[in-house]
Each structure stands twice: as structure tokens, then as C-alpha cells.
Design a protein around this nucleic acid. Structure first.
Length: 970
RNA sequence: GGGUGAUUAGCUCAGUGGUAGAGCGCUUCGUUCACAUCGAAGAUGUCGGGAGUUCGAAUCUCUCAUCACCCA
């Protein structure tokens, strides 16, 4: 049955993918040669609630190319798939879903029930991306699919937390953190986005106490005094007036003469009447505003530092939802005027931060301590998920002491143990790691790995000390934590309660009982000690930081881990270099003391064809599944591969994809041509390299070897675009444009041996095209592989070739074919420019020609006649009147077409060519006549230049002769 | 403010010291027996400006301009 006219991607792709799966073609180690080296790639785990977007499609295509390439080379290959539980994002999605379907909310449901809902949701709509990946053709080992919340991985994460805790790399502390008031959780620095907003700078007057004053001076740009007055207040400026309730100081620069005598004095905080000191700190910038800044240590990172240096109190004045917390807030009340306090509590307690801001500004205006308002454009930190302004917030959180684990991660890149490409990524990596901050890893969420820490009452001198807070016991399981507690308390009579509050209530009651007995608590005492588990979960990136070892079954001893770790290449977006790559580096070294991978390939964001970030708002999102449906997965993959220049911007355009779909059709039709010429009759897919006689066949074998080397070199260097363009150029520009055309006369001849040889060679060449193209375009190549021979293996496991140009290029055939192709192009060019009708066969005159040319012509006459559409060749001394001249290497031909050729046009054509030639020749001669060039340039460059100049000179002579003849005629 | 990168044909981009390229688009011609999702031919560049290093610079250095992204 003859082949279809085009490849039917929609029909073939699912069928072929199913065949691969049925054959377990992607299983770890499939097609591995005995004792082969390993190759392992970890899929950056997509969000479990996610779907395949253009960025995934790109990222996954590159990995699939590498993986398929290694697998075909017989390496022991594993592409490890899996999904990330994506804590905050997933919790958000499920909460929205509950609200949308009018179900009870998270808090109403309670932790356990809510988590059931999350799991339900995950089962229902999670993992959609897996199905989509299959449509893309991704060859992951699905049998090993991992999930960050699954049992074994979960246990590994907990185990690492415990290890790092025991090693002192993790600690808990009351710190200022980035607080997301929407989700009511801490987030890390990296999850904060700076957003430029048009806002205001409010100037507030704080009254100096004890009758102090100072000289306030204003100057213009030239330093001339414009204002001088004596003031009994200090003006501070702020973009967040509501934080003034937590002010505990005013800072001025130590060198600021205006305020020197005020340092140590106090001001009275408006509204609350708190007396706060004026302190010296170089954080205050004398050139900005009035040079005095209010200090709110509990609500600003800079102020926190100032507060530490000046020993100022930190007063938290907000609730977790960023409403004001004033009532029942002892720290706030301390030092306040009782009446003022009552008023401000009445006015602002529980009020949202922005409403409080307005109310405070209004009060300041009414009471006369508003100095003024300036418009001000400034950056406001926002939560990257919630999009609300974050608050610096003072809470107890868990931190990774990054300073302790950053060293090996830095060293690994510095000494080349792990390479980041493109290299610019390394600079960015150093810059971040060299200035790394502690990493806040606790999140006040429910969906995630719950921190494996239990708290029990603290003992002082063997007695329970209710004032000493709670003691942490870190262990992988509750049983192990209990064992630790048993050691600490001397008994295991413990009662697990839900939270700290309940534990405190029970403890106070218990101590009451114990105290009644007039003794410290003893093991025999009747009341169990209340203990509770830390309610927080770990940052999602903490778990994904363990992705390499966790997916390989660590810490259980197992073959996969032994074999594939450290893994080989990480392919990921440069936007998560810090979030993920740097943390994996730090954590793998911290936990198992080895690098996670030897190469990190970073790529940019996939953008639309104009280079604009895709976003729902702009409506320029390109859905890869839609593209696959329209053009086929292979076309999308080839487009992805072709745009993957190192460090380049990734612009995805439908026109390009369409072009690569056409490329697939071109390949398909080359096979159709071969089939029609009996190339595949009785084929068994022998991999034997042919040793043909005909020049054309010898030549194409050499060309194939060249492209094999190019593709391997490109992939070796992660230059995906080079691999794509080498293959595109070879398949279309060499095989289709030339080899198939040149083979036509051979197939049409009576020479049975030549026909057989050409069939054999073409079958081999086309097989090589399939093999070399397969990593990029797996579907169409697999289909053609199956249709054109009876094979013992699918293409996915075909043997990748290793022949070299050195072995297979026949220099003679190479030179001869280049001459023939040049000759044909020269004739076509003249025909085209002289407007010789395309279908018209014309006579050719051979004027002068050297031996090499004569040989090449004679040996390929039928090809030349056919492809240049020549009907006869005659040798002649000179060209007749009205002939067009065709200079070739080593000689001159002419087309005697007096009635077609316009002498004027031919003259113009020759002159134009001569002019171009003259320019080139000028450059070449200029270089050669420069003694310094001949002296200092490499021998081969000089020789090349000489040769080129000789050729161009010869051509110039021929063109000039032709022009002279024309002049005689005209 | 700091960092990183970009600027090459009408468009989108390759090209890291040795004859300026590809794809798309454009113009002309073409139903030659694989393919019109095609073929043949053609036009289009002071490689952002300036300076320097070099026998030689799109490529290396400096500087200026414009733009993008990341971090404050």
C-alpha cells in the first residue's frame, strides 16, 4: 500500500506513544548496553494543580531530546518524573474551590477535614500535566512518578529536617519575617515582589519633651539658606503612618549637627503619649527629608536593625491579618498615657491597616501634628501569590542557617564540580549565595510537610517551669519524639493536645495540682503532661530542594540511588536559580555531601512572538496543546529546539511552528519518493554503512557523517539550536534539494547495479535521518521507521551512529559533487536572470575547461543536463554573438540564446558581478600585500586567502573576456 | 542605586578574531513523474554611536545611547 501523502499526526501520535509505553521503552535503563554509563535527569516537578504551558513544553522538550539521545546511545538512562504539592498555591486553589461551591471554609472544616478536601481535589484534577506531557512525547519513566507529599518522599523530607536540626543547621527564633496578611503566613524573601506604586510620604511632627528645641534650616540647591526657624518638634516622614503606634524611637545621624544636642532626649509619641528616645544611628540619612526617621522595630526591617543597635523595644501592633492589635496588648500599653490609650484602642483596635492609616492621618491633621503630605513613588513589597502588600511581622519561625551550608554549594560551582550554563548564571549564583540571608522555612499553612517538632513544658532544676516556655523535641515520628521526652522528663505520661493554647491551659491546671502537693511533679503524679506538635508546615521549596535524592528513594538503601545519584543535568528556568537550584545545591551537600548534578542548563522565559511575557490579562497565552493539535507535537518540539540558543530570548511564533510542520512533511515526502523508487522493498533495516561506487552516493555518505558529528557536538554542548539547524539544513538542503534530485537520473538509467547501489545508499541515508532526527521529532520518525522496513527494534531504541567524517568523507567525491552543484547553480542563476523560461531545455557551450572540470562534467553529465535543463553540450572556441557567459571553477560555459538574451541585460549582469568580485578581490589583495598579515596570520589562513584570491582573479579574467566579446558584438 | 544581558537583512534571531548567515516575509518565474505544507532565481546590511587593541573586529577592551530582566 503506497504511503499517505502527509503524516497524520493526530492519528499517529497517541498510537505511537502507546506503543512506546507498551514496550516499556522509557523505563530506567531501557536500551542500556551492558555496563553503560548512566544518564539521569530530574524533571523539575510541576505544580500538581498545574497544566502544561508553553514554558513546560519548552523545558520538557529539551530534556526529552537529551534523554532520547542518551538512551539511543545505549546509556543507562533515567528521566525521573513527578509533581510538586505546591503548598500555598494548592491551598489557595482549594479554598477558592470551597468558596465557589459554597462549602464550609478551611477554618470551619478544621485541619484534618480540609486536608482530606485537598487530597480529593488533587486526585480529581491533579496530574493533568502528566497526560499533556505524553502528548508532547516526553519519555519519562512513568513507573517512577514521584510526588512531594507521597509517603517515601514525605518521610525523606522529615528525616532531612531532623538531621539538619540535629546538626544545628536549622533553628527557631522570633524574627521579623515577610508576612503575607492574606494567607496569614510567613513567606521567604524570594516570594516577595517589589511593586512600584504611586503613594504618599506623610510628614508627622513629634513634640520634643522637656522644652527642648532646635534650629531648623532649609537650603536651596546652591546652598543658600532659605528658611531658619526654632522648632520644638521633630518632623519624621513615613509611607506607613499606621506603624507609628509601634514607634519606640526617633533616629538621627550621629554627625548631623542640627540634632546633636537632642540625642538622648525624648519625644512624645502623638495619639498614645508614649515617651520615646532620640537615638543616633547612621541609618538616618541627613540629606533625606528632615534627617530624622521614626523607628518601628517590630514593623520594618531597617528599623529592626536600628532597634537592636539602640536597644529599643519592639512593639507589635498588628494582628496576623494586618488589622491593628491594640486592645489586650500589654507591650503596646506599656508606657502609654491611660486616657490616650483608651481613646486609641476605642478608635483603632481591630481596624484594617489602611483604614487605620486614614484615621491616623485625619487625627494628625485635626490635632495639628500633620506637617504635610508629599506624593511619592516607591516600591512596596507584595506577596507573589496573594498580590497583597506584605508586612514585616514579628513571629516565631523556623530558619535554615544558610551561612552554615552555603560553603560547599559555592565551592562546587567555583571549582567546576557543577557547571552552570550559560556562564552568566554562575555570576548571578555567586552574587546571591555570597550575600545569602537566613531562609525562613516555616509556613502557617496546612497543606505541606508538617514540622516534626513537639513541644513540652520546660524543666528548671528538674521542676516544671511554666514561665520558661516550651521545649522543642525534634524527631521523625511522634513515637521517637516521645522517646526523647521520656528521657527528658523521666517518664512517658504525655498527652498530645491540638495546640499551644490548650497545652497552656492544661499545664496551668496541672501545675496547680502539683503545687497543691507541695512538690515538683513526679512520674507518679496523676496528670499527663500536655504536649503539642508544631502547627506549621515547611516551605514547599524545602521539600523540592531534596528532589534529587528524595525521588531516588533516599534514605532507604536502593539501587536507583546508588546508580543514578549524583544526577547529570538539571534543565530549568533561570527564574528559579535561587528558589530551587541554589537550594538543591546547598541541601544535597548538607544532607548527603555530594553535588546533585554536574550541569545546570538555565533558560529564559518563553514569550510570545513579540517577546512579550505571556499572561492571561494580555490574552497572549499560547496553549501548547492547541499547537500540538494544529501542527503536531513534532513541529512544536522542533520549534522549541530551534529557539533554544544559549542565553537567547525564547520567542514562540506560530509561523515558525508551521514552518517546522512543513519540514516534517518534506521529510515524509522524501520517504515517499524513496518508496516509489523501490528503496524500501524487502528492507530489514540493516545498519551496515554502504560502500557505493557512484560519486553521488559516495558524497552523500560523507555528508551524513558530517552532520552526525555536528549534531553530537551541538548536543554535547547543549547548543540545541545548532543541532536543529544542522539537521534542518541537511535533511532539506542536502538530502531533499540535492541528493534525491541527483539520484533521479540514476534511478532512470538502465544500470541495474547503479540502481541497486543507490537504493541501498538512500535507504541508509534516510535511516540515518530518522535516527538523528528522532530526539527532536520522535513521532514522525518512529512512524517512518516502522513503515519502511521490518525492524527488530523500534526507533526509540535504535543504535545511535558513531561514524566520523574522517572515515566516510571521500575527498574526491566531495570535490566533484561541489563542482557539479556549483555548475548547476551557475546555469540556473543565468537562466533565472536572463528570464529563460523555466521549462525550456537549452543548449550549452563548453568553452575553456580544466581537466578536473572536464572529468567532473563527463562523469556527471546526465545529472547536470537534467538539473540544469540542458539538451545538448558542444565544445566551442568562443561564444557566439548573444550568448550568456557562465564562469565556473576551472573554466567557462555559455548559453547561446541570441533570440532570448538581451545583450544589454547580459552586460549589466556581468558588470554587476565584476563589481562585486572587484570588491572582494580588493579586500583579499589588500590583506595579502600587507607583510604583517603574511607574517602573523596562521599559515592556513594565509594559504586559504591566496587560493581564494587566485580563484577570484581567474573568474575576473573570464568575466572581463566575456564583457569584451559583448562589446565587440554590440 | 547595584547586577546581568541585549542592540546584526522589512520581521524574528543565529553567529566570540580570518570571504556577514538562517527562517519567515518580499519580487520574478514555474501544474518537469516525492512534496504548492513545493521548486528555481532574486533584492535587501556603514553588524546601535564613538574610541582603542590587533596584520585583521559583528566578535576582545573602554565609553556613550537605547531597551529588557533580576536584586535593593
Amino acid at each position: 500500500m503506497p504511503m499517505e501523502k502527509t503524516f497524520n499526526a493526530a492519528e499517529a501520535e497517541p498510537r505511537i506513544y502507546a506503543e512506546w509505553e507498551k514496550a516499556d521503552a522509557f523505563a530506567a535503563g531501557a536500551n542500556a548496553a551492558p555496563g553503560a554509563e548512566t544518564f539521569c535527569i530530574m524533571l523539575p516537578p510541576p505544580n500538581v494543580t498545574g497544566f502544561l504551558h508553553a514554558g513546560h513544553a519548552f523545558n520538557h522538550t529539551l530534556m526529552d531530546i537529551l534523554v532520547r539521545w542518551h538512551r539511543m546511545r545505549g546509556h543507562d538512562t533515567l528521566w525521573q518524573p513527578g509533581l510538586d504539592h505546591a503548598g500555598i498555591a494548592t491551598q489557595l486553589v482549594v479554598e477558592r474551590e470551597l468558596a465557589r461551591t459554597q462549602q464550609p471554609g478551611r477554618r470551619e472544616l478544621g485541619r484534618e477535614k480540609f486536608l482530606e478536601k485537598v487530597h480529593e481535589w488533587k486526585e480529581r484534577s491533579g496530574g493533568m500535566i502528566v497526560q499533556q506531557d505524553k502528548r508532547l512525547g516526553a519519555s519519562m519513566d512513568w513507573s517512577r512518578e514521584a510526588f512531594t507529599m507521597d509517603g517515601q518522599f514525605h518521610d525523606a523530607v522529615i528525616r532531612v529536617f531532623v538531621d539538619m536540626y540535629d546538626k544545628g543547621m536549622i533553628y527557631r527564633g522570633k524574627r521579623l519575617v515577610n508576612w503575607d496578611p492574606h494567607f496569614e503566613t510567613a513567606i521567604s524573601d524570594l516570594e516577595v515582589e517589589q511593586v512600584e506604586v504611586d503613594g504618599h510620604m506623610w510628614r508627622l511632627r513629634y513634640q520634643l519633651e522637656n522644652g527642648e528645641t532646635f534650629e531648623y534650616v532649609e537650603k536651596d540647591e546652591d546652598g543658600n539658606e532659605t528658611l531658619r526657624e526654632t522648632r520644638d518638634y521633630i518632623t519624621v516622614a513615613t509611607t506607613r503612618p499606621e506603624t507609628m503606634l509601634g514607634d519606640t524611637g526617633v533616629a538621627v545621624h550621629p554627625d548631623d549637627a542640627r540634632y546633636a544636642h537632642l540625642i538622648g532626649k525624648t519625644v512624645r509619641l502623638p495619639l498614645v503619649g508614649r515617651s520615646i528616645p532620640i537615638v543616633a544611628d547612621s541609618y538616618a540619612d541627613p540629606t533625606k527629608g528632615t534627617g530624622a526617621v521614626k523607628i518601628t522595630p517590630a514593623h520594618d526591617f531597617n528599623d529592626w536593625e536600628v532597634g537592636k543597635r539602640a536597644e529599643l523595644r519592639a512593639i507589635n501592633v498588628m494582628n496576623p491579618d494586618a488589622s491593628m492589635w491594640l486592645k489586650d496588648n500589654p507591650a503596646f500599653a506599656e508606657g502609654c498615657d491611660a486616657k490616650a490609650l483608651a481613646n486609641v484602642v476605642q478608635m483603632l483596635d481591630g481596624v484594617d491597616r489602611y483604614e487605620a492609616r486614614d484615621a491616623i492621618v485625619t487625627a494628625a491633621r485635626d490635632d495639628g501634628w500633620l506637617d504635610g503630605i508629599d506624593t511619592d513613588r516607591h516600591a512596596v513589597p507584595h506577596g507573589d501569590r496573594s498580590k497583597v502588600a506584605i508586612e514585616p511581622y514579628l513571629t516565631d519561625q523556623w530558619f535554615v542557617d544558610t551561612a552554615k551550608i552555603v560553603g560547599p554549594a559555592l565551592d562546587a560551582v567555583r571549582n567546576g564540580e557543577t557547571k552552570i550554563i550559560p556562564e552568566s548564571g554562575e555570576k548571578v549564583y555567586y552574587h546571591w549565595l555570597e550575600n545569602i540571608e537566613p531562609w525562613c522555612i516555616s509556613r502557617q499553612l496546612w497543606w505541606g510537610h508538617r514540622i516534626p517538632v513537639w513541644y513540652g513544658p520546660t524543666l528548671t532544676d528538674g521542676a516544671i517551669d511554666a514561665d520558661a516556655g516550651w521545649t522543642a523535641f525534634c524527631a521523625p515520628t511522634q513515637d521517637e519524639a516521645f522517646a526523647k521526652m521520656a528521657e527528658y522528663y523521666g517518664h512517658e505520661d504525655l498527652k498530645v493536645v491540638t495546640d499551644q493554647r490548650e497545652a497552656e491551659e492544661l499545664l496551668i491546671a496541672a501545675i496547680g495540682e502539683v503545687r497543691d502537693e507541695g512538690a515538683i511533679r513526679t512520674p507518679e503524679a496523676p496528670t499527663a503532661l500536655p504536649v503539642y506538635r508544631d502547627p506549621d508546615v515547611l516551605d514547599t521549596w524545602f521539600s523540592s530542594g531534596l528532589w534529587p535524592i528524595g525521588t531516588l528513594g533516599w534514605p532507604q538503601p536502593n539501587e536507583a540511588y546508588e546508580k543514578y545519584f549524583p544526577t547529570d543535568v538539571l534543565v530549568t528556568g533561570q527564574d528559579i536559580l535561587f528558589f530551587w537550584v541554589a537550594r538543591m545545591m546547598m541541601m544535597q551537600y548538607a544532607v548527603v555531601g555530594q553535588k546533585p548534578f554536574h550541569t545546570v542548563y538555565l533558560h529564559g522565559l518563553v514569550r510570545d512572538e513579540k517577546g512579550v511575557k505571556m499572561s492571561k490579562v494580555l490574552g497572549n497565552v499560547i496553549d501548547p496543546i492547541e499547537l500540538i493539535e494544529e501542527y503536531g507535537a513534532d513541529a512544536l518540539r522542533f520549534a522549541n529546539c530551534a529557539m533554544a540558543a544559549l542565553g537567547g530570548t525564547l520567542k514562540l511564533s506560530r509561523d515558525n511552528i508551521k514552518g517546522y510542520r512543513n519540514f516534517g512533511t518534506k521529510l515524509w515526502n522524501a520517504f515517499r519518493f524513496a518508496e516509489m523508487n523501490g528503496v524500501f522493498e524487502g528492507r530489514t533495516g540493516s545498519a551496515t554503512i554502504p560502500a557505493p561506487q557512484a560519486t553521488v552516493n559516495k558524497w552523500i555518505v560523507g555528508e551524513t557523517a558530517k552532520v552526525r558529528e555536528e549534531v553530537d557536538a551541538a548536543l554535547e554542548a547543549y547548543r540545541f539550536n545548532d543541532a536543529a539547524s544542522a539537521l534542518y539544513g541537511f535533511v532539506w538542503g542536502v538530502v531533499c534539494d540535492w541528493y534525491l534530485e541527483l539520484a533521479k537520473p540514476l534511478f532512470n538509467s538502465d544500470d541495474e547495479a547503479a540502481i541497486a547501489e543507490t537504493r541501498e545508499t538512500m535507504a541508509w541515508v534516510l535511516d540515518q535521518c530518522l535516527i538523528l532526527m528522532h530526539p527532536i521529532m520522535p513521532f514522525i520518525t518512529e512512524e517512518l521507521w516502522g513503515q519502511t522496513a521490518t525492524r527488530n527494534k523500534m526507533l526509540v531504541h535504535a543504535e545511535w551512529p558513531t561514524y566520523t567524517a574522517r572515515d566516510l568523507v571521500d575527498a574526491g567525491a566531495d570535490a566533484e559533487m561541489n563542482w557539479v552543484i556549483g555548475m548547476i547553480e551557475a546555469v540556473r542563476s543565468v537562466r533565472g536572470e536572463m528570464n529563460v523560461p523555466a521549462g525550456m531545455k537549452v543548449p550549452l557551450l563548453q568553452l575553456e575547461l580544466d581537466d578536473a572540470g572536464r572529468n567532473a562534467f563527463a562523469r556527471n553529465e546526465s545529472l547536470i543536463l537534467r538539473l540544469a535543463r540542458i539538451d545538448s553540450v558542444t565544445e566551442a572556441e568562443s561564444a557566439p554573438k548573444g550568448a550568456a557567459t557562465i564562469p565556473v571553477t576551472g573554466g567557462t560555459f555559455a548559453l547561446p540564446l541570441a533570440d532570448i538574451i538581451d545583450v544589454g541585460a547580459e552586460k549589466a549582469r556581468l558588470e554587476k558581478q565584476l563589481q562585486k568580485l572587484g570588491k572582494e578581490l580588493g579586500g583579499l589583495k589588500g590583506r595579502l600585500s600587507n607583510p604583517k598579515f603574511v607574517e602573523s596570520a596562521p599559515e592556513e589562513v594565509v594559504e586559504e586567502t591566496r587560493e581564494l584570491a587566485r580563484d577570484k582573479e581567474a573568474e575576473e579574467v573570464r568575466l572581463k573576456a566575456a564583457l569584451e566579446r559583448l562589446a565587440e558584438v554590440g
